[in-house]
Structure formats: C-alpha cells, structure tokens
Design a binder for these strands. Structure first.
Lengths: 236, 236
DNA sequence: ATGACGCTTCGGTCCCCGTCGAAATGTCCG
DNA sequence: CGGACATTTCGACGGGGACCGAAGCGTCAT
C-alpha cells in the first residue's frame, strides 16, 4: 500500500459527480435498478450503465440480476463507512432548489446511514439509549441489553466477528455521534421490521409511523414524532 | 448533500495515482516539503506543486510556509480516517520491487496511522491494554487509566469534545482493530516523546528503540522488539 | 408471437487534466 | 550583492474519460 494506485482506483470511482450521486443514492441501503440511478443522477441510461460497471469493478457496489432489471447495492458496510468518512470532510452544501431543500430537511430529520439510524432521530435514539443505561455514554459500549430487546433487537445475533458490536458514527448533519456497528444495524432492522419506521421512496430519508412514535415514546421516552418532523416544513 | 458534487470534489482529489501517493506519504503524520512529496510520487516538482494546490483546495491538506520550503500536512485526523476507510476497501497490493517489499514489511510491523499506532505493534499494544484491564476488550472503552499513565499518557488532556476518547480503527494489514481516537493519539505522542518509538525517515514506519522494548515489556508485557521486527527480513 | 421495457455495447465528440521543461519568484547563505 | 535552492506559473502535448443517441440483446406481459 505504499503505492497509491489502489487508493486512487477506489477514490477515483467516487471522484466524479455522477458516480458520487449514485453512491449517495445507494447509501439509503436499498438495492436500486440502474434506471433509478440514472434518473437520480440525471444522465442517460447508457451513461449510467458505464458508471455502474466502473463502480462494480472498483468493488464499491454489487450487481444482481432480477428479471430484466439489474439491482445495484453498496458492496457492504465498509463502503458506507468510507463514504460517510469522506462526507465529513466536505463543507456544507448549498441548496439548489426547493425540492432539494425539502429532501435535505427530511434527511436531517431521520435517515438511514446504509444500515443504521442517523439524523436527529438517530442521535436522539442514541442519546436515549445512553440515558436509559443501555449504552455507556461516551464509548457506546453495551451495558444493558434489556432496553434493546424491548425494541425487538436480538443482541446476540448482532454480534459479528467482522465488525465491532457498537461503533460511533459521526453524523454529518448533527455533528454528533450516533450508534453504528452491528448493534446499530440490528436496531434499524428491527424498527423497519416492526413498521416503526419506514423508508421514504426515492432517497435515504425515513418516516416514523404512528406505531413507531408511540412505541419509541413508551420504551425510550423519545419524542420521535417531533425529532423526525421537518422543522416548519411540510411533512409528507 | 443529496447532490454528489461535494463528495466528488473530495474523493476526486484522492482519486489519482500521484495525489494518492502523496496523501499516503503524509499519513505518517509528519509535515513534508513539496519536494519530498514529488520525490516520493516520482513526478517533477512543478507537477507536485499543482497537486498540492488541488489537495489544499479540497481541504485535505494544509500548507505552511517555512523558509523557502512549503510544508504540507494532512488537514486533520478526519482526513486520515477517511483515507484509512478507503484503504480498507482496496484489495491486497502486489509487490513491485524489493525496496517496496522491505518498506511494506516495515509498515506491517509498526507504523503510525497519522496520529496513533498501527501494524503488529499497534495491535499488540492494544491487546495488552485490554488484557491489563486498562481498556474494555470489545469496545476499547477506558476502564483503568493507571496503566496508561505509567506509559506517560495524560488521560485527562486527551479528552477532546471533537472526537471520541477511544475509537477502534481497523488495521488494513492485520485486519484487527487497534486503538485510535484521542487516547490513541496521546499514546503515540507519549511514546514518541519518551523516545520509545521513533519515526523511520521516509515513510510511515516506526522503529522501537531499546528503551521502548524494555519499557513496553515491563509495563505491558509486550514483546515489542519481536512484534516490530520485520519477519525474516533485515531490520534497519 | 409481438411489443414494451431495461440494459448494454458501440461510435463519435468534446473537454478535462496529468505531464514535462523553461522561466519567473522568493528565500537563504556566503 | 550574487549564487544555490525550493516552489510556482506558463505553454504545449497527449490521453483518458464523460456524455449522448442508435442499435442490439434479454426478459416480461399481453
């Protein structure tokens, strides 16, 4: 690795506006067809096809054929972590359109960071888990699995030798740490499975359902409906 | 951030062989003059100058004039973390030359990961800190500051609101976590200040001094001389 | 079977950017 | 002050790659 060509190959795959848009789109955690990525990035299907091929050969995404579609997904949580680390280096973005502003507001409120919660909701849930004694405040080390199990998380099966059980992920919008790692992934998975949060179509933003609002209030004392509301904006 | 241009700007700065080599060179943690980066990357001084300008405008490095030299350094630990995260995505590198093989062996043994220890030595020290009860095994949360203070670390001043006290950093050579974060930085700083480890010129690799070998053996029970030896290779 | 649809390949165009050497600027040291 | 050195600017060259539309190839539905 003293030679830079490996790093350049991976970074170069992200280092172009169109491909970067595609990867950000995939950061929602769902697999998307090539056509959706083309639309999101604003390029022709043929152009998008080439970019997907390059992302795949760089190992950033995996592609799976499904009928006549080809579904593209991030290759793993390591990719999402690298993208998040790079995103932290970028300054704030300028708002370009009303639609972009809406979308940004929704993502600031609640979003998935590939496989775990982020945004105000993610930080709020993490803080509540610390306050309830489930997690150690600074390090986010697991202290008491009880609260998490009441959220439907199977803590034991969240253990995975390939990555730490808990990890702090610095939120680019809140500039505060939130819960990532195997446990963060299991938590989002459980909330999605229970229908407490749902993915908003066409992006990384999440929506808190009525069941989720009451459940999170009861178990964690978190006013999720307030946290996940777009400040002063319309909530779809 | 739903637009990819910010991500592309930062990733694009890393996404070119020559600039990637320069950044890897800077990952040692020392500020280097432009001429040293040019030599390391194998390009003319004028070419290197342009690349440094681009890295600076992307916010990845800072440049400080010192006499007739301009010293380039990584802009902060966030940059180092992003580069490490990207490095984890690259496969193994092929060895191109005997010199590169020597260098790689030295870096696998002991190196600085911008501001903390990495390589076999870094992992070994981290394991020993866990075994001695100073750190919590999985999360690396601080348990007992005593051992660290015997290593010269001022734990209190290592606390920094802008980043976690301890963080796990996955080692690309060992594929095992080691200690990063504010405490990891303070530890490397202390070992360098005490003269227990020293930077090898021209790279990220570290050398364990005689004082360091006996000190680490006494305080942590770590056979640092063995860990930091290049396996079967010559040790300069 | 016959479209409709999603995707890829191909050919062509254009521009960005990495590279160098030469010359200019600025700094240090006799 | 004048020569050595580090760096930057400039001009020129060449290559890689981003883009599109048209055409070809599977797959699904009617």
């Amino acid at each position: 690795m003293s030679d830079g060509s490996n790093l350049a190959r991976v970074a170069g795959a992200l280092g172009e506006r169109t491909r970067a848009s595609m990867v950000i789109e995939l950061l929602g955690g769902e697999a998307l067809p090539v056509s959706a990525l083309a639309r999101a990035a604003g390029v022709a299907a043929s152009t998008a096809s080439g970019h997907v091929a390059r992302l795949e050969s760089a190992g950033l995404v995996t592609v799976r054929s499904d009928g006549r579609e080809r579904l593209v997904a991030l290759a793993g949580h390591e990719v999402a972590e690298a993208v998040e680390a790079l995103t932290l280096l970028t300054g704030e973005s300028e708002i370009r359109s009303l639609r972009a502003a809406d979308r940004l507001a929704a993502e600031r409120a609640a979003r998935s960071c590939y496989d775990h919660l982020a945004g105000r909701l993610g930080v709020g849930v993490c803080d509540a888990l610390c306050a309830s004694g489930a997690l150690e405040p600074g390090s986010l080390a697991l202290r008491d699995a009880g609260v998490l199990e009441r959220l439907g998380v199977d803590v034991e099966s969240a253990r995975d030798a390939r990555r730490p059980l808990t990890r702090t992920c610095l939120d680019w919008s809140e500039r505060r740490p939130h819960l990532a790692g195997g446990l963060g992934a299991a938590l989002l998975g459980s909330l999605l499975e229970r229908g407490w949060v749902a993915r908003r179509p066409g992006g990384r933003a999440l929506r808190v359902t009525d069941a989720g609002a009451s459940g999170l209030l009861e178990v964690l004392g978190v006013d999720a409906a307030h946290l996940a509301a777009t400040h002063g904006g319309r909530v779809v």
